[in-house]
């Protein structure tokens, strides 16, 4: 059984004078027990897909199923078996941490005690603050509370819409550790993120942009499809280096990538490039071959 299945989903929003196609003929499926990532910037269509799958929004065209339940006909069943953490904090700000969790347990006809083992890991970090109002929590704690509330009825599938946006690298790492543990308990996870480095933590990913899927595969397979030698180039003057590399006639693409610039060439000519850089005044430039990452692949696909 597929955990999630979308076929030719289209969603258009009408504005005053124009309209925006947020989801443009999207099809994909998620296997049970998988961590599946929708990776893309704002405006890629990630949130609309989440809202369609959680039965909060109707698609214009196409159909979608969650554990064989149709998102239109069987919306009631779906709401019982999924957990949803929206991108925007949507808990009750004027209820305390504990009251929020208790509330979500109650509307799903269960209790905190009954499913405590599932949330214990996350919730115990919140327990010292359980009498604090949710509105007074910091970003990271709100995120943990929201995840606890999405889990308290023991859903079969978790929908997490940008759970780590705006979160610092340490908390992001911790959050992904939690997701890995939930996967071990058999929960299917559909998660979206604008952070390309999180892609490799998913079993499979869809790279999205402007309502369309550019590619779907395992992170390894996507990296293998890059199909070009990628070089990391470094010198003492990185800003000048970027402009010089972009002016090199055999450069295909060149982007700043932290401490190095990532470069692809129209043809293999590293010796010529070395000479060119030396002539341009980069005395200690280094050129090293490296494995592309998801972000390299994303940018390559964007240019197609």
């Amino acid at each position: 059984m597929k955990a999630v299945e979308l076929k030719n989903i289209v969603k258009t929003y009408a504005l005053k004078k124009s309209s925006v196609t947020a989801v443009d003929d999207v099809s994909f499926s998620v296997e049970e027990g998988e961590i599946f990532g929708l990776i893309g910037p704002d405006g890629a269509g990630k949130t609309s897909i989440f809202r369609i799958l959680t039965t909060l929004l109707l698609a214009d065209k196409g159909n979608a199923k969650v554990l064989c339940n149709d998102v239109v006909k069987d919306w009631k069943t779906i709401r019982d078996i999924v957990g949803y953490m929206p991108g925007r904090f949507s808990l009750y700000q004027d209820l305390t941490v504990e009251e929020n969790l208790d509330f979500f347990a109650t509307i799903f006809n269960t209790t905190i005690q009954e499913n405590y083992d599932l949330v214990a890991d996350i919730y115990k970090q919140l327990e010292p603050f359980k009498t604090r109002r949710a509105g007074k929590l910091s970003g990271g704690m709100k995120q943990k509370l929201a995840l606890s509330c999405a889990l308290i009825h023991k859903p079969k599938i978790l929908f997490l819409d940008e759970p780590t946006t705006g979160v610092d690298p340490v908390s992001r790492k911790e959050f992904w550790e939690i997701l890995k543990r939930l996967k071990k308990q058999g929960i299917t996870i559909l998660v979206s993120t604008p952070y390309m480095d999180e892609a490799k933590l998913c079993d499979r990913i869809a790279l999205m942009q402007k309502g369309k899927i550019m590619t779907i595969d395992t992170p390894e397979a996507i990296v293998n499809q890059f199909g070009k030698n990628l070089y990391a180039v470094h010198s003492e003057s990185m800003f000048k280096l970027l402009n010089d590399l972009r002016s090199f006639t055999k450069t295909e693409s060149c982007f700043a990538f932290g401490e190095n610039h990532h470069l692809t060439l129209k043809e293999e000519c590293t010796t010529e490039l070395e000479k060119y850089l030396l002539a341009s005044g980069h005395n200690n430039a280094t050129i090293k071959k490296l494995e592309p990452g998801i972000e390299d692949c994303f940018m390559q696909l964007m240019k197609k």
């Binding site: 910037p41 604008p194 972000e295 964007m302």
Partner: peptide
């Protein structure tokens, strides 16, 4: 946090403007 949620190419163009 000027570049949160921005696509990778635009994020780099933004840094060109910073430079």
């Amino acid at each position: 946090e000027p570049t949160g949620g921005v696509d990778p190419i635009t994020r780099r163009q933004f840094w060109d403007m910073i430079y």
